[in-house]
């Protein structure tokens, strides 16, 4: 039997918009994954939760403009805390195409702007987790 994928989701920082992340949480759960949604959290809190929960993937949501600053902190702190290197990161929210590229460069394997569909997101999570070293 296939192992259940575990996903940790958070709203990045103080961003107020949560319809998107709630939608993604439900869609991943409906797709058979285990989802932990911790609500609004700072990068260090997300890293602490990830250390405890040991998810395959960490997904964060940011529609308030702070994706680069907090995104960078999240990746840096995850590395500094020695979070399992095979953990996949994804981010959804409102960003310019240039920022979307910067987020990829920072280490977010999945970057989902407005209009991203369910199959796209679920498909990415399955594929990214399957391709990460821990699952091999």
């Amino acid at each position: 039997m296939e192992r259940k994928i575990k996903v940790l989701l958070a709203k990045l920082g103080l961003d107020v918009h949560n319809r998107g992340v709630i939608t993604v949480a439900k869609e991943l759960r409906d797709a058979g994954m285990e989802v932990v949604y911790i609500g609004n959290a700072l990068p260090e809190q997300i890293v602490a939760a990830a250390s405890q929960e040991d998810p395959d993937l960490v997904g964060v949501s940011s529609l308030g403009g702070a994706h680069l600053s907090l995104g960078q902190m999240l990746i840096d702190q995850a590395r500094a805390a020695g979070l399992a290197p095979e953990t996949v990161f994804m981010i959804g929210g409102v960003f310019s195409p240039a920022d979307a590229q910067k987020l990829k460069d920072l280490g977010f394997a999945g970057v989902f702007p407005p209009g991203s569909g369910r199959d796209e997101i679920v498909g990415f999570v399955r594929q990214a987790v399957a391709a990460s070293p821990a699952s091999v």
């Binding site: 103080l14 961003d15 700072l42 702070a66 907090l70 902190m73």
Partner: peptide, 15 residues
């Protein structure tokens, strides 16, 4: 929160 609160880091002046 104030701009110098740790919770505001990276988000001051955003949106």
């Amino acid at each position: 929160y104030d701009s110098d609160d740790a919770i505001a880091a990276g988000q001051v002046g955003m949106s």
